[in-house]
């Protein structure tokens, strides 16, 4: 993990959220949790549901770890983080199964896999276990929003190109580029969007030299 936390004045909530969405976007910049990012993003709705689930798990786990870290024995902190994540994931899994059965039937399998998402446990280890409650909350929120943003954008691109629709609304007849709905198309979509992300960032930072908020590295 190459994330380095800046010593000195604590970052503000706005910086932390923007950091998660842009400078350290989990998918486009940190390249973490790419497997689910490919697997579920065939449509906007799927990406949105998994993104919201990850957002909730990330925020709740970050807050929980900050609150209980004083009681966690340092030797077993990783197993305890995993338990915390697993509890929140199972709670959200049961809630989704109860209230959104149709969507759950499609992405339920991936919701359970959130337990093993690298992005969540890495934020707990590098941020929530060392920072106070409020920054941890906003870091979790930022990272969750960043993941949600990435999944929705990838889902929109693949649904538009692969199925000719957007959020379930048909826009083009037939299937324009079915390739993008298939797994290989997922990798290509992510690569193209990552390139766009880098290009935009280079343009903006080249002009304004503002290095984002806390983003101190490439991957």
């Amino acid at each position: 993990m190459s994330t380095v936390l800046l010593p000195g004045p604590a970052p503000t909530a706005r910086q932390l959220i923007l950091n998660g969405i842009f400078a350290e976007n989990p998918v486009f910049r940190l390249a973490l949790s790419l497997c689910p990012a490919v697997a579920v993003t065939t449509t906007v709705a799927n990406g949105l549901l998994l993104g919201v689930a990850v957002l909730l798990v990330q925020v709740l786990s970050s807050v929980t770890v900050t609150l209980v870290r004083g009681f966690i024995h340092p030797r077993v902190r990783i197993p305890v983080y995993t338990i915390i994540i697993a509890v929140w994931v199972s709670a959200i899994d049961m809630t989704l199964a109860a209230f959104t059965p149709a969507l759950y039937a499609q992405v339920g399998l991936y919701v359970k896999l959130i337990v093993a998402f690298a992005i969540i446990i890495s934020r707990l280890e590098v941020f929530a276990s060392r920072q106070p409650l409020v920054p941890s909350f906003f870091d979790g929120l930022g990272m969750g929003l960043g993941f949600l943003f990435a999944l929705v954008v990838i889902g929109a691109m693949r649904e538009l190109l692969g199925a000719g629709s957007l959020a379930g609304i048909p826009l083009a007849p037939g299937k324009p580029l079915l390739f993008f709905a298939l797994p290989a198309g997922g990798f290509f979509s992510i690569a193209l969007l990552m390139a766009l992300f880098n290009w935009v960032e280079r343009r903006t930072t080249g002009k304004s030299s503002a290095g984002g908020a806390g983003g101190t590295h490439g991957v």
Binding site: F71, I72, H73, V76, P79, V80, I83, I84, A86, V87, S90, A91, M94, T95, A97, A98, F99
Partner: peptide, 21 residues
């Protein structure tokens, strides 16, 4: 430490299960 963490997690999951089942 591990036992307490597991017990607390199990208690929470039981509560969620009873609320959503």
């Amino acid at each position: 430490s591990m036992t307490v963490a597991c017990l607390a997690g199990a208690a929470m999951l039981g509560a969620v299960f009873m609320a959503t089942d």
